[in-house]
Amino acid sequence: MSRRSLQSVLYVDDEPDIREVVELSLTLAADLKVDSCGSGEQAIKMLATLRPDMVLLDAMMPGLDGPATLARMRADPRLAGIPVVFLTAKALPAEIQRFLALGAVAIIPKPFDALRLAEQVQTIWNGLADAG
């Protein structure tokens, strides 16, 4: 299967500074279109119209947290096919296994290297294309 190039991402994190870093990193280094929001509830609303190629999701957030947001997405046929990557400081082996079991395609542990984040995201996207 040949998947088109990665163009747009929605980043969900309750920490505004980290949202800014991720937006900068992905736009400067990879010229991606990056939207962001601070909660799972907002993400579900935005996804109804945005339809990004990929969602980057923090795990620990007030209200609808990362796993609950992913579960909502997987339960909605319109959103179920969007790949979700957790960008999280909750990256112990058991936590990673849990996120993958929930349907995440990959986990990028925090702290991440802002200079390398775009490359990591692109590698994950290319892996999805290779996996077909």
Binding site: D14, E15, D17, I18, V21, A89, K110, P111, F112
Partner: peptide
């Protein structure tokens, strides 16, 4: 939750002692 946020963010900015 607040401690988690400070830990994660400060590490990204390289503030290791704070993290």
């Amino acid at each position: 939750m607040v401690a988690h946020r400070i830990r994660g963010s400060s590490a990204i900015f390289g503030f290791s002692m704070l993290s």
